[in-house]
């Protein structure tokens, strides 16, 4: 654990024979991956933050028509978005359950839950694709309105991050298959789960944004000074 202020107050020019400074580093691959994950989340967070900020800024130009509010707008009725969201919630929950069973060394349950997580994630992705189809059938094409552009863009970028997560998870699974021990997977799985929960959170924010009425969006934009 690094305490920034304490660290920055040290006086390294004093030579100390103090044992405590000559610690042996205790680093395993998981600890390193955990640090890396924190940075990944920061990077992904900044990425989506910037998208959202530009969304709010762009919403203040006269040609912007948000996708909710009026009855003929697709996201005024949010039931379809909730359906998709529930898949992602289930995926996150299954992932968490997978960790718990791995910690209790229950191999079959772990495999079951993790497979369920993968299944629901893929289901979510397909549901999103279907949503794309629906919107374009209704005439909401990507370039007809900036709100539509953002809808396709944000869902695509979010989906790609999930695909990336699936690839890492697949790599992890193939590695553990070789080792054949569930406890070994618990810790790295925890990292995957954190990533999944994070992407769920991101999706909830995007959801809220896409389903906001013009009034809400204007209020948010005003708060940001646009």
């Amino acid at each position: 654990m690094i305490r920034p202020l304490q660290t920055l107050r040290q006086k390294p020019w004093l030579t100390q024979a103090s044992e405590q400074l000559n610690l042996i580093p205790e680093v395993d691959s998981v600890a390193a991956a955990r640090i890396a994950l924190r940075f990944i989340l920061a990077v992904v967070g900044v990425l989506f933050f910037l998208f959202v900020i530009t969304y709010l800024a762009r919403s203040q130009y006269p040609d912007f028509q948000s996708l909710a509010g009026a009855p003929w707008q697709p996201f005024t009725d949010t039931s379809r978005l909730w359906l998709n969201t529930s898949f992602l919630i289930l995926a996150s929950a299954a992932m968490q359950a997978g960790i718990w069973s791995a910690q209790q060394e229950r191999q079959n349950r772990t495999i079951g839950f993790v497979s369920a997580a993968v299944f629901f994630t893929v289901l979510f992705l397909f549901a999103q694709l279907q949503l794309w189809q629906q919107l374009s059938q209704l005439g909401f094409y990507i370039s007809t309105n900036p709100a539509n552009s953002y809808f396709y863009l944000l869902t695509a970028v979010h989906g790609l991050h999930l695909v990336g997560g699936l690839i890492v998870l697949g790599y992890l699974a193939s590695k553990t298959w070789a080792v054949d021990s569930v406890t070994a997977i618990a810790k790295p799985l925890q990292l995957c789960a954190t990533y999944w929960h994070f992407l769920l959170g991101v999706w909830m924010v995007l959801f809220a944004l896409l389903a906001s009425s013009p009034q809400t969006i204007n209020a948010l934009a005003a708060m940001c000074g646009f």
Partner: peptide
Amino acid sequence: GLNYVTTVLQARTHGMTLMR
């Protein structure tokens, strides 16, 4: 970049504190 920051934070040898 992920490599550089993680390496600096995690792989310093014995006695290599941040301020050293």
